[in-house]
């Protein structure tokens, strides 16, 4: 009953985008205040590719992810996911039940703060089980096999499966969060500043992990970071955001070596010089 396709999508220029985002806008409005978090953001993500979004804090890059995962409601704009209604209806028009399906089956989010993505009152294995249970897995042994599989993929010792992540280190919590995100083989994984809160030595391990998973399993992902090093390591293509707008987009090596926009030049030179 539970068949899992371990498909490594063969990236190809002719394939259709897996995600199309059009004119995504999020405005926070309260009496006397109007904050444009992001405005008219448009991009495509293709199967098997990692799209980077880089920018400083407040550039709106995390807002884009939050809107896509529907943690916050977009003010306007559309986002089409290939597997949702054949990409003909925006995921922003999904009803509550469809949204939940999107969040537990088609998409996954890895948050900067593991507390956002993990239930710390539930065991590490249980956190992964949650997504499997949502997909109607009903055998405990199979669920535990799968959970161990994901935990070992993310290099979490399997003998800690029945411990509570509240007692794990930050790096280990982040690994559990990634394991959880991979459960159910979501089509699209959203990664929000996944190494920002971690010690430098731990950051490296988490980045290597994501890179390996991407390489081995052909994960399609959008990764948001203020760190060009993270983007350089993981992203094929990159958007540069400033003040809620995309100021430049291109191949990641082009963004880093031949930035066109004044802001990007500043950003790149801050790092390399």
């Amino acid at each position: 009953m539970v068949a899992e396709q371990t498909q490594v999508p063969e990236p190809s220029a002719s394939s259709e985008p897996l995600l199309r985002v059009r004119d995504l806008t999020k405005i926070y409005e309260s009496p006397g205040q109007r904050i444009v978090a992001c405005e008219d953001v448009s991009f495509d993500v293709y199967p098997g590719e990692v799209l980077g979004i880089v920018g400083e804090s407040g550039s709106g890059k995390s807002t884009v992810l939050q809107c896509l995962f529907q943690d916050v409601e977009a003010t306007s704009g559309q986002a089409f996911l290939r597997s949702f209604e054949d990409g003909e209806r925006s995921i922003f028009d999904a009803d509550r039940r469809e949204r939940r399906e999107l969040r537990t089956h088609q998409m996954a989010m890895v948050y900067q703060n593991p507390r956002m993505g993990l239930n710390l009152m539930v065991t590490a294995g249980g956190n992964i089980a949650e997504r499997l249970l949502a997909a109607d897995w009903r055998r405990v042994d199979e669920i535990r096999d799968k959970a161990s599989d994901y935990l070992s993929r993310t290099e979490v010792p399997v003998d800690r499966m029945d411990d509570f992540p509240a007692f794990f280190s930050g790096g280990m919590q982040q690994r559990v969060q990634i394991a959880k995100a991979l459960a159910n083989n979501p089509e699209l994984v959203l990664l929000d500043e996944l190494t920002t809160g971690l010690d430098v030595s731990v950051q490296a391990g988490v980045l290597d992990l994501v890179r390996d998973i991407q390489r081995i399993y052909g994960m399609t992902a959008v990764i948001v970071s203020h760190d060009l090093g993270v983007i350089r390591l993981l992203a094929d293509r990159t958007l540069v955001m400033k003040d809620g707008h995309v100021v430049e987009s291109g191949l990641t090596d082009q963004i880093l070596e031949d930035p066109q926009h004044e802001y990007t030049q500043l950003l790149v030179n801050c790092v390399t010089n």
Binding site: R96, V122, T123, E130, L133, A134, I143
Partner: peptide, 14 residues
């Protein structure tokens, strides 16, 4: 309303 019972199942798993 949404038949969103995965947390119930999760409680049983735990």
């Amino acid at each position: 309303a949404e038949q969103d019972y995965s947390r119930m199942w999760l409680a049983l798993y735990e």
